[in-house]
Design a protein around this nucleic acid. Structure first.
Length: 842
RNA sequence: GCCCGGGUGGCGGAAUGGCAGACGCUGAGGACUUAAAAUCCUCCGGGGAUUUUUCCUCAUGUGGGUUCGACUCCCACCCCGGGCACCA
């Protein structure tokens, strides 16, 4: 089809007119506005708020179409539904666009918001627009500042000099979660550098245990893979920290290692520290290997910047010339530097047990260090130093050898006993180590929330008092995109007075990571215009937790971890009582074109507004729901969308043809006993469809198969045309109205229009989801599949509910059975009522 | 390397241990039309037999297994996608 022309379908279906008409009516009747009402059951359904950039494409649209189906179904089922929308409006693209076009980030952002809003309204999504929020507005970000101050009071926000991830293109710091394989999450081609800067952190690690433990509460409600990803990210390891005194440098103290296998400590044949270990300078001072060591260190530190191939990199190391003593055995073992030991994890030093760890083994083999077996399996061949072991998972079945007083113990017993001994003798302790690190939130950019502290020469760092919030962004910043925060170059912002002493002071010039904005935005929807508090706890108490959260898998860690953290902090502040923000999470698939996700930079976006103009919003919605199950990726096809368009036209023509003749009758007012064959056929099909569509909407979210069922029903109605012959108007109405109601959550505008055509003066939005009638859905005659030895050999039309033995008798008389049983006897049979009979012959 | 997903016609996909390929797209043929569009009808996994009609057979990544019966459950392997990754 070269050029699409809606008028050419020969039907009166005009989506542009219909959709505008109903959008206005919904708005006038305030259909989607809802208020907290404890007398009614609530349902909070939410799609992740978009970053308003570029065009709103069909990828966005699919996300919102899914949420809108859920919102509309729940409304039809009597829930008080909260379904809001807003804008994740701070962020770098706005600032970069402003620099490029010499405008203000606000200008760019607000015009994008206006565009996005126009498109979302064009699609008729059932949002309560009164609750719209934009995170770049002071009414919103003042509460980011407020929360920050509360965290500061509790020691959950702190400042420290630290080595950070720095993206040269963003010209700012990135959180660990924003570094993907050593590259910036926004610039896939840009390696992240390492810099040392004073930074603000939020203490996510204070909640590491809760963030991990509470994942259990989400099981069943959140996708397993998201839970797994978070669990891995938090990365809890139970083990012990053990101090190895440095033997040959007086005053050097000891080196602490972290291990999960303290039971193998007698097998440690060396101690390996990270190239950036703080004690290294002291060890190498006056070391015989000094010059050689320094050269290697420089080399090692340089190459360790490239984290992307760390995992596959060759193990490198060198001997420091120093030794440490094993606190259990007193044995002197050499101290090495190894490139595979990470300063960021554990203590930055490991004991090297080559017999029971793959990495240690590789390292020792390369450098000729000895291998000593200290755990032997209970059964089978004993291990020898020549044989690679690393039998980590089997340590439960082993017993200790070469381990002094601990010989013969099981590894588990040894871990318990040795940890106790280490604690008693004060050279070690049982420890839990997390991979999760604190959340670095400082960003050296303009378009974000100013961090509300000032620095006073006299009083040091002073928090801004609540009454002075919000700290507003200066209206006319100098944006360069380079170096220091633009706020630092804005004197009217920087120069202030100390809240404590009144003397001159400087403001903090960093802004907050935009993930702060999205960490609690869904609470603000409950009470979006509150200027006394972030929100009213009673309102949040009614709506929360979110019943259904919907968004992309890309946020499995970043946003979804931060917002879980924020929720727990707010609970500890006494603002809320729940511990998890969303009880159910759905991660929808992406919309692809040419096999890759739509994005402006790739130039493969399908503009949602263009689709609406071409086919109408309802066709666009229907297609994204029909083309694939919602959790799977969907390859966009311009050809396939025509099928959805054709289907809606078929439905429209059908109702157009019959609406007039069924007006004035009441659906449901009929006597099925007196029904004709045609009536029974269609009523049965309709109620069977209703039963399955209801299931698909309620539990399985198989919108694609629900639509297929509605297509089948429509095809069946067409097959029974002309309906007027042998079908009473009230039954025609029943069939057509149920079809309309089932379509309503997905193609709401068309459904309203059809509803009106039936003669209803009240909007469909006031109608409940229909209940299916199991009596009507029941078949009178069924087709039973007959198998012989598990192979289909024929079918029998029999009355529904026919008794098992009767069916067997009938089947055995059939030619197709005798032919395939070859005179053998039926020794057994299996029967599924009204469905299947399997005769086993032998 | 480890952990999740997934693999079904030309394509998107359906089938919650019971007829594999629903529904849609594409394609082919036909009806209507001066013509086109739209609409409507028929056909559309492979092989074979019968060439009206129907029947047989193979087929859901590969190989095994459980079962009366497996796309579905179990084991092993291959491939694709995603996540994590010298995490001590």
């Amino acid at each position: 089809m070269a050029e699409h022309n809606p008028q050419a379908t020969g039907s009166g279906y005009d989506p542009q007119a219909i959709e505008a008409k109903w959008q206005k009516r919904w708005a006038d009747a305030r259909v989607f506005e809802s208020e907290a009402d404890p007398s009614r059951p609530k349902y909070y359904v939410l799609e992740m708020l978009p970053y308003p950039s570029g065009t709103l494409h069909m990828g966005h649209m699919r996300n919102y179409a899914i949420g809108d189906v859920v919102a509309r179904v729940k409304r039809m089922r009597g829930f008080n539904v909260l379904h809001p929308m807003g804008w994740d409006a701070f962020g770098l693209p706005a600032e970069n666009a402003a620099i490029k076009n010499n405008t203000h980030p606000r200008t760019w952002t607000n015009s994008n918001i206006a565009e996005f809003q126009k498109v979302l309204r064009r699609f008729g999504f059932s949002y309560d627009w009164r609750r719209e929020i934009s995170t770049c507005e002071p009414e919103y970000y003042r509460w980011n500042q407020w929360f920050f101050l509360r965290m500061l009071e509790r020691g959950l926000a702190y400042r420290k000099k630290s080595r950070v991830n720095w993206c040269p293109k963003c010209a700012t710091v990135l959180a660990n979660e924003q570094v993907i394989n050593g590259y910036c999450w926004r610039h896939e081609d840009t390696l992240v550098e390492s810099r040392e800067i004073e930074q603000w952190f939020l203490k996510t690690t204070a909640y590491a245990d809760q963030l991990l433990d509470d994942l259990k509460l989400l099981e069943g409600g959140w996708p397993d893979r998201v839970i797994t990803m978070q669990r891995n990210w938090i990365g809890k390891s139970q083990g012990a920290k053990v101090k190895f005194p440095v033997a040959d440098v007086p005053g050097a103290g000891s080196i602490e290692v972290f291990t999960t296998r303290i039971d193998t400590i007698y097998g440690a044949t060396s101690l390996i520290v990270a190239p950036t270990h703080p004690l290294l300078a002291k060890l190498l001072e006056s070391s015989p290997n000094r010059a050689e060591a320094d050269a290697k260190l420089v080399q090692m530190r340089q190459s360790s910047v490239k984290t992307e191939d760390l995992a596959t990199a060759e193990k490198e190391g060198f001997f420091t010339g120093r030794h440490a003593s094993n606190p259990f055995s007193g044995e002197k073992i050499p101290i090495w530097v190894g490139n595979f030991v990470l300063m960021e994890y554990g203590t930055g030093a490991v004991m090297c047990v080559p017999a029971h760890d793959q990495r240690d083994f590789e390292f020792c083999r390369k450098y000729g260090l000895p291998v000593r077996v200290v755990v032997q399996p209970l059964e089978g061949e004993p291990l020898t130093p020549d044989k690679m072991i690393a039998a980590f998972d089997e340590h439960q079945q082993g017993k200790l050898v070469n381990s002094g007083p601990y010989n013969g113990l099981s590894p588990d017993d040894a871990i318990a006993k040795m940890t106790t001994v280490a604690e008693q003798k004060r050279f070690g302790s049982g420890e839990i180590v997390f991979r999760l690190k604190d959340w670095g939130i400082s960003r050296q950019r303009y378009w974000g929330t100013p961090i509300p502290v000032v620095y006073c020469p006299k009083d040091g760092m002073v928090p801004v008092p609540d009454k002075d919030l919000p700290i507003l962004l200066p209206p006319n910043p100098k944006l360069t995109g380079m170096g220091e925060s633009p706020l630092a170059a804005t004197p009217e912002f920087v120069n202030t007075t100390c809240p404590k002493c009144g003397g001159p002071a400087r403001r903090e010039t960093d802004t907050m990571d935009t993930f702060v904005d999205s960490s609690w935005y869904f609470y603000r929807y409950c009470d979006p215009h509150n200027n006394q508090a972030p929100y009213d706890s009673a309102k949040v108490g009614y709506w929360f937790p979110i019943d259904q959260y919907i968004g992309g898998i890309t946020h499995a860690i970043l946003h979804l971890l931060y917002s879980r953290f924020w929720c727990k902090v707010m609970r500890d502040l006494g603002l809320i009582t729940h511990g998890e923000p969303a009880s159910r999470l759905f991660t929808q698939g992406m919309v692809l074109k040419g096999g890759v996700a739509m994005s402006k930079s790739r130039g493969n976006v399908v503009d949602a507004l263009e689709m609406a103009e071409k086919f109408g919003a309802d066709t666009g919605r229907l297609y994204t729901l029909f083309a694939a199950p919602p959790e799977k990726d969907l390859e966009w096809s311009e050809e396939s969308i025509e099928g959805s368009w054709r289907f809606l036209n078929r439905v429209f023509r059908l109702v157009e043809r019959h609406a007039q003749s069924v007006r004035g009758t009441n659906r449901g007012n009929f006597d099925i006993a007196k029904a004709s064959e045609k009536e029974k056929t269609l009523l049965r099909k309709t109620h069977q469809t209703l039963r399955r569509v209801t299931q698909d909407f309620e539990s399985r979210w198989h919108f694609n198969s629900a639509i297929a069922l509605l297509m089948e029903l429509t095809n069946e109605i067409y097959a029974q045309e002309p309906l007027e012959e042998g079908m009473r108007p009230e039954l025609r109405k029943e069939v057509l109205e149920l079809l309309t109601l089932m379509l309503a959550p997905m193609t709401p505008h068309l459904a309203e229009e059809l509803w009106e055509m039936f003669g209803h003066t009240e909007g469909l939005w006031k109608t409940s989801w229909p209940a299916f009638d199991s009596d009507l859905a029941r078949e009178e005659e069924v087709e039973v599949v007959v198998q012989v030895n598990g192979r289909v050999r024929g079918k029998l039309k029999v009355p529904a509910g026919l008794a098992e033995n009767e069916l067997v008798t009938r089947a055995m008389a059939e030619h197709f059975v005798t032919q395939h049983s070859n005179g053998k006897r039926v020794v057994k049979h299996f029967f599924v009522p009204d469905k299947l009979l399997n005769l086993v012959v032998a």
